[in-house]
Nucleic acid binder design. Structure first.
Length: 598
RNA sequence: GCUGCUGUAGCUCAGUGGUAGAGCACUUCCUUGGUAAGGAAGAGGUCACGGGUUCAAGUCCCGUCAGCAGCUCCA
């Protein structure tokens, strides 16, 4: 995963965000010049640039963007100053009305009473243009002091509400120097190359099919290997962590989801019922009801708790057609789900255990993450204040116990309990939620779960939902981008390519390949009569971590010429030395790809 | 779901209402090569799908499906 936009945030006379906001104004004035009927929405600076929303009589195309850029340059060439003017609310309203800017008038009404109301103007004569805006802005718009590019146009709802009309949004970016802009654009190209959808095709990892439906992922053998290694690792960790495997059906009677409440609260995300023997059945959107049924199957004692049950459970959810995205947002996916049934006293320890597990897994893949504590929402919650406070405190304690820093997400909890969410970043710098730890007071109540306490009374357990990878689809999609297709040795689809120099060396090469295979390494034995150079190229293309090239000398000495992914140099070492090295890489799940030392 | 764009060979993409194209990949033969493209020949197509306009549709129109950039919503 690309860590961050490497474009240097070159020090200009103002912060980059101020420049970008001013360029957004410049763009808006150019748009008004070209489309006098334009209505204006909002036009802020954003992480990598800026946008401005317009209501226009015609649909913009990329061609229009070039025209607008040209007009922006013409205006900027006159080095217009940007000037601020303070208005009273009534003056502002009057001005906006005279300009016929309905959206802006709505914007004016959003400004709280007592706050300063300002306009920013730039340009002279016919070019004069002003906008209701709190600023700040750069002093002047001279084209020699900054560089910009308009990137694309997209629809966006007025004030982000899908009930409102849709405006046209133009995205652009701006920097103080030409080099910084260039570097940013190159970074965007790099991001595109690492897109998991592109690599998914290039490396033969996965596919989706119009004929199967949007949002359903087909894992090809190469990615199947990655998944299987990941699952093996996951089960090893969970077995060691005291989790027991459970398996629950994909389809259940609808009444189960009425008990769990999913039908009422989550119904629009669920697939339509199917009828069997005149009863409605549903495909599961979550695994928790099944786990609750297992808990409830017999009486439970406090002596059994905590119970930790894990399932790689495949669920199906209806996602709106416009939101599906490669492997990152799909309609059928497998959660690395587990539920912990425990007493309130055990909660903090259990949470701490999960936090440790999350850290172990995310660190193994070199992910950086942030954790958020999501607390009780303002309304519509279940459970009394005391249990909320106690659970929230347990989450805090647990985090403190494992030195996990929590950012507060006030009121961001589920209606059924507080939670800790983890977020990692993808190649575009977008944050994706993967790991989550959620306390649930609701489901135990709905299913009337109980255990017998030491005093013989029936007590309600707390149920902790937790996922570490989130879903295998999203996590692996993230992994592809994180590593740019260059998987670490232990999960790489093909780990070692074996290439004889000439056909007569194929016997020695075959011996090498068979020895590797006997130790369960994944070997691409390229033993046919083709050209060595072609095989090297093919192994490079496939991102195979190591190539072993064997000719006469190697066959005589029992060595291999090792060529490491991403390099052109070879190191000749005894085959046994290489074997020892890769055993170590596999066993330690190393992220490194070292050169063997002779 | 909404706005806009796109859909031609495995991949990347040309294609002006009148015979379906290129490069790479693939197959076969030749080449026996010490670290990223040796040579020749061949095969490969429901131009996403359905309807319409037209003497004639990959090309124009409508619909459906899928993809892309966003908005909105989520693992």
């Amino acid at each position: 995963m690309i860590q961050a936009d490497p474009a240097p945030q070159v020090e200009g006379p103002h912060p980059l965000s101020t420049l970008r906001h001013s360029v957004a104004h410049l763009m808006a004035s150019a748009v008004q010049k070209l489309f006098p009927e334009a209505q204006f929405g909002f036009g802020p600076s954003i992480e990598h640039g800026f946008y401005y929303d317009f209501d226009l009589p015609e649909q913009l195309t990329d061609k229009d963007l070039r025209k607008i850029e040209k007009e922006m340059r013409r205006i900027a060439n006159r080095s217009p100053k940007i000037e601020k003017e303070v208005f009273t609310r009534e003056e502002a309203r009057e001005r906006l009305r005279s300009w016929g800017q309905e959206f802006k008038i709505e914007g004016l009404d959003l400004i709280p009473e007592g706050e300063e109301i300002s306009f920013y103007f730039h340009g002279d004569g016919e070019d004069r243009w002003g906008d209701l805006c709190e600023g700040p802005h750069v002093d002047s718009l001279s084209e020699h002091e900054f560089h910009f590019k308009l990137q694309h146009v997209a629809g966006a709802y007025w004030r982000g509400d899908e009930k409102n009309p849709m405006l046209q949004r133009i995205y652009g970016t701006a920097f103080w120097t030409k080099d910084a802009l260039k570097e940013h654009l190159e970074w965007l190209e790099e991001v595109k190359k690492r897109d998991h959808r592109k690599l998914g095709t290039d490396l033969d990892l996965f596919s989706v099919h119009a004929n199967a439906g949007a949002g359903f992922v087909f894992w090809h053998p190469n990615l199947g290997v990655v998944r299987r290694e990941l699952e093996r690792y996951w089960w090893d960790l969970h077995t060691a962590g005291g989790y027991k495997p459970v398996y629950t059906p994909h389809v259940s009677r609808e009444s189960l989801f009425a008990v769990s409440g999913h039908l009422q609260n989550y119904g629009e995300m669920m697939y339509a019922p199917m009828e069997l023997d005149e009863l409605p059945y549903r495909i599961k959107p979550m695994n928790c009801p099944g786990h609750a049924l297992i808990f409830k199957d017999r009486g439970r004692s406090y002596r059994e708790l905590p119970l930790r049950w894990a399932e790689l459970g495949t669920v199906y959810r209806y996602e709106r057609s416009g939101v599906v995205h490669g492997m990152l947002r799909v309609r059928g996916f497998t959660q690395d789900d587990a539920h912990i049934f425990c007493t309130p006293d055990q909660l903090a320890d259990e949470i701490a255990g999960v936090c440790r597990l999350v850290d172990t897994v995310l660190t193994t893949f070199g992910f950086e993450y942030k954790a958020y504590l999501a607390t009780k929402p303002a309304e519509k919650t279940i459970g009394d204040d005391e249990i909320w406070e106690r659970a929230t405190e347990s989450l805090r304690q647990a985090a403190a116990a494992v030195d996990l820093e929590l950012e507060l997400d006030e009121g961001g909890g589920a209606f059924y309990g507080p939670k800790i969410d983890y977020k990692i970043k993808d190649a575009l710098g977008r944050e994706w939620q993967n790991s989550t730890i959620q306390c649930d007071f609701n489901l135990p109540e709905r299913f009337d779960l109980a255990y017998t306490a030491p005093d013989g009374s029936q007590m309600r357990p707390i149920m902790v939902h937790r996922a570490i990878l989130g879903s295998l689809e999203r996590f692996v999609g993230g992994l592809i981008e994180h590593f740019g297709g260059k998987f670490p040795f232990w999960i790489a689809p093909s780990q070692v390519a074996v290439i004889p120099i000439r056909e007569e060396h194929a016997d020695y090469a075959r011996g090498v390949a068979e020895r590797l295979e006997s130790e369960l390494f994944r070997v691409d034995a390229m033993l046919d009569a083709g050209h060595m150079n072609k095989k090297i190229k093919e192994a490079q293309r496939a991102q195979t971590p190591y190539m072993l090239i064997a000719g006469e000398r190697e066959a005589e000495e029992g060595t291999v010429a090792v060529r490491r992914r991403g390099t052109r140099e070879q190191v000749v070492v005894p085959f046994e030395t290489f074997l020892d090295m890769i055993r170590g890489l596999r066993d330690t799940k190393s992220l490194e790809l070292p050169e063997p030392s002779a």
